Simulated scan of single mutants.
Amino acid sequence: MATVPVSLAPTEYGTDQDVAALSRLSFITAVHPDIILTHILTRLDGATLATTASTSSHLRLLCADEDLWQKICAATWPSLTDPTTSHVISTFPAGHRSIFYDAFPSLHHNSPSDPYRLPPPPPPPELISAVDIYYNGEPMFSRVHRTETEKNWFLTSPFCVEMLEPDGMVPTPVRFSLIFEEWARHMEESLRLSWVVIDPTLKRAANVSSRRPVWVRRHWLTRDLEAAFAIVMEAEEVRCWVKVTWCGKFGRKVYVRKVKMEMEDAEGGHVRGEEAVGILQRAMESGVRKRVVVDGGGCGVEAVMKSYEKFSCMVKERRKRKHRRQEMMDVASTLLAFAVFLLFCFLIYSTNNLLTYDEHVSGCIA
């Protein structure tokens, strides 16, 4: 008869492992909830707090504290402390916990929508963008922008959200360097960006930034530094761009000159505002969220870069096909025009010959 291991030997209360689990649970429930909230849970970051909430019903109840999640969201995204976003977040089903679950992971909208689902909701009257830029882990730029989505100029124009006025510049702690290659490499390693798009109607949100720049380069005309952040929504065959422009023409100080978001289709063209709002709504509802470890590399960063490079190759290939198709249409149009010209000349020549023949016959008869 097989012997049962001592560690798994059944007892009056179950196996030894069950007894150990019950002992740990009894220890947790024996601690006063205020002590757990004040001295333990306040020391956790958002991801760890979410994991802790899944361990037991007792901890789940404690980890649902709104003040905890409000402090975590404020530390992660300083822009969410703005009264505009605070009011909208208060209407979410779980408050700041909902916004964290939506915006903290990376958005992967790479599976087609269910064709039998309910029709999409109408466009919201506005979208709220909460943008935070970090330098060496410290926030240095935080802005909130409300975009009205019901105006005709927005619906029919290329989708673009500008966080700064055309003549607005924001000073930063970044130092200007005359050696551009070193400066660009330093900025690529030090910059992080979060762009949280909030739909007040759906009460959903999504982070449409790659967190880390996909490239940093100098503008060919202005010579300013440009940093680009991008995510690819494969289900929609679009890429969401966030571009930040820096200028260092005032001594050695560096200023943020432009922060804008655009959307690009698979052929490199701009997406209209009406289409972009629908894409963002579908991404908020059905997009998969995955945690991405930005600092220190890792599979998350590699997956984001691989998706970006794959989409870039697809855009180049489609542009080439479109260019070849246009060239073929140009050749066909030229040949058709030449054929029409030859036919026109032939008709004129035939008409002249016919008139000459008629005059000759008339003269012979006369």
Rank of each mutant, 00 (worst) to 15 (best):
E327A: 11
A332I: 08
V174D: 00
V254W: 06
L118F: 07
E274L: 13
D330Y: 06
P121L: 14
F92Q: 11
E302S: 05
I99C: 07
E274K: 15
I35R: 08
Y101I: 03
I36L: 15
P33D: 04
S210M: 04
P10G: 02
Y308Q: 04
D167I: 14
I35H: 02
Q326A: 07
T15H: 04
P124Y: 12
F250M: 07
M329W: 03
N152K: 15
C63T: 10
E262S: 07
F311H: 06
H109G: 00
M1A: 02
V331K: 15
G363H: 10
G168Q: 15
F180R: 15
S209E: 06
I35A: 01
M163R: 15
F141N: 06
F344I: 03
M1F: 00
Q17G: 00
L68G: 01
V271C: 06
E309W: 03
A206F: 14
E150W: 03
T245K: 13
A184W: 15
P10I: 06
P124V: 13
W246I: 09
L62Q: 10
T3Q: 08
R143Y: 01
S333N: 05
C247W: 13
I348H: 04
F92I: 09
L25I: 11
G273H: 05
I36K: 07
D330Q: 13
V216H: 07
R272L: 01
T15G: 02
I348P: 00
V174Q: 04
E262P: 00
G248W: 12
A184Y: 15
F159C: 01
W183N: 05
S90D: 04
R212F: 01
S362T: 12
S312D: 09
P115S: 05
V238N: 04
A266Q: 08
G248H: 11
G297S: 08
P93K: 15
W69L: 05
K322R: 10
